[in-house]
Structures are given as structure tokens and as C-alpha cells.
Computed example of a mutant assay.
Amino acid sequence: MKLLITGAGGQLGRDLVRVLESEHTCYALTREELDVTDGDALSGRIRSIAPDAVIYAAAYTQVDQAETDLEMAFRVNAVGAGHAAMGAEAIGAAMVYVSTDYVFDGKKGTPYLETDPVSPLGAYGRSKLAGEQLTRELSSRHFIIRTSWLYGRDGSNFVTKILAAAGQRPELTVVDDQFGSPTYTVDLASCIGRMLQTQAYGTYHVANRGFCSRYAFAEAILAAAGRHDVILNPASSEAFVLPAQRPENSALADRGLRRAGIPRMRDWKSALEHFIDSDYLLKG
């Protein structure tokens, strides 16, 4: 297939290219090469490349900053996605929109299904939800992929931050009342590749199986890295005052993948251990 990947310089974008380029022709466009908020430029690239699928991995992900930078968050996460969906539809291409668990308020208490009602708590979640809605309205061949707690070799993420902090301090404090599904970007990219081989369009929850608290995630990170010397202390979210409210439990259930017969992701601990044992060593 011929794939156009936006946001190719980001954490997920880089792994999409690494994973997919062996089997497909990838036109990987970074933020510097393509401003997704420029509708004419985005539509023009889609027409000139004429891909079989557009993977919209460009994203405004600064959750706290989005509260005051609302316009840019919506321009990148929603308006740009709408232009991409229209461009893809015009040439008969599939559209992949990467969304987030933050479209939920985290109050359900059990992992979210694709059919559960959405209710984002902050600007970031609202902007991603708007991107979902525009994708559904403007593309008849769409995959909306909700994922969560991403980490990978490139960029800054919870795993790399914990390991960096462990190298600087003997004691760390992490919240133990936020729950989610940690997701390795290599696994997510591989799953997106498998989905593109189908025509099972729709909305999917794609995350490594299972869920945990931020504290348990940090425990597993330190254990996998052999950092048993670091003391880890639990804390309530109330101890960390942030501009944007986070969902308390935004764990994702992958019923959509199972119903479509698309292979499920491996469990989050196995993915984490693989990342730290191999991919993390290549960072930098």
C-alpha cells in the first residue's frame, strides 16, 4: 500500500514508519514538512501523493497547555483531521485517526468499550473528540483508534521520565489513583498495519491488554530496568495540582478488535519489558 503519515516526527509517527515501511511505501511528513493546520497544503499533498490510506498521527498532546491554548489544540486535533478526512475521501483512500482515552471522564469504574458514552473532562479530550466526529462525518472509510498512555523510543513519555528521574533521585512519588492501559507505540503501529489490511472500518480501542495505576506502572518500569534501589512512594492526585483534570480510570477494553477478528495486543507488562530490554537501549 501507499501510506501518507502525518506527524511522522513524533513518538508514534516514527514507529509507524519503522514498522510499516518494510511492507508499504510510506510518505512520512513531519510537522516541519507539512503543517496540518493549513488545509490547502494538506489537501494538496493528499492529492499529489494519492495514498491508499492517510494515517493522521499529528497531534497536539500538551494536556495542561491545551486549557489555555485551546485554539491550537482544536486546529491540530480537529480541524486538521477534518481536512485529512475530506482529502482521503475525495480520492477513495482510507483514513486513520489516532484518538485518546481522554474522551472519557474515567468514572465508569471498569474498562471502556467503544460503545460507551464519551464525556471528556478537559480541552485536550474535547479537541480529540471533535477530531473523531469530523472523521466520522467526512470519511466513509475510517478507522478511529483510541489508545492510551503511549510510550516509545522517541519523545518524552512516562516510562522515559521515570527512568530519567530514577537516575537523578533515590526516591520518587507517583499517583496511585489514576488507572489506564499503558501502550507501546511499536505494538500500536503494528496493529494499525494489520487493520489497514482489512475493510473493517469503525471505532476501536487499541492498547496493550490490561490496566494498572500510575504507581503500579512506575513499579513495573523500575523492576524491568533493575532499579530496585529506588524507593517509590504512592500519592493521591490531590497532591499534584495541574491545570487539566485527568480521568480517574480510563482503561480501555478491546471488544472491537475481537469482534473484527483482528489480533489483540499483547499484555502491557510484556510490552514494557520488551521495550526496556531492547528498544529503550537504542534511545538517543
Rank of each mutant, 00 (worst) to 15 (best):
D64P: 03
A251Y: 08
G202F: 14
V96A: 02
Q178C: 13
K107G: 06
Y280K: 01
G92Q: 08
V103W: 07
T37L: 02
Y215E: 02
L196I: 00
R136Y: 13
E23H: 15
V230E: 08
S22H: 14
A220Q: 05
R45C: 12
I276C: 06
L196T: 03
R255D: 14
S278E: 15
I221L: 06
G7C: 05
C191W: 14
H274Q: 13
S213K: 00
V54M: 13
Q245C: 08
C26S: 03
V54H: 12
D267G: 03
T203I: 15
L163Q: 10
Y184A: 00
Q178I: 14
C212A: 05
A81K: 06
G125L: 11
R126E: 06
R136Q: 14
I49Y: 09
M195Y: 01
G202M: 09
D154T: 08
N208K: 13
R153I: 13
D277E: 15
E114P: 11
V103H: 08
M265K: 11
K161A: 15
T135Q: 03
N208G: 09
T160R: 07
A207F: 14
V118L: 10
R47V: 10
L282D: 05
I145R: 05
T198R: 04
K2Q: 14
A189M: 09
T185L: 09
P234R: 01
Y151E: 02
V174R: 00
M95E: 08
R141G: 08
G155R: 04
Q62P: 11
V63A: 10
L121M: 04
D176V: 03
V98C: 05
T61E: 03
R246G: 06
Q62Y: 08
Y56N: 01
H274I: 10
F179P: 04
E89N: 09
A207N: 13
R18W: 01
S190P: 05
E33S: 11
A165I: 08
D176R: 07
G122V: 00
A239N: 12
V174Q: 04
A53S: 10
L138Q: 08
G180W: 15
Y112T: 15
R246T: 12
I145C: 08
K128Q: 10
D267W: 05
C212N: 00
Q11I: 00
Y204H: 03
G39C: 12
V36W: 00
C26K: 01
E89Y: 07
D154K: 02
H83S: 13
C212E: 00
P234V: 02
K128P: 09
I46T: 05
W268S: 01
K283A: 14
A94H: 05
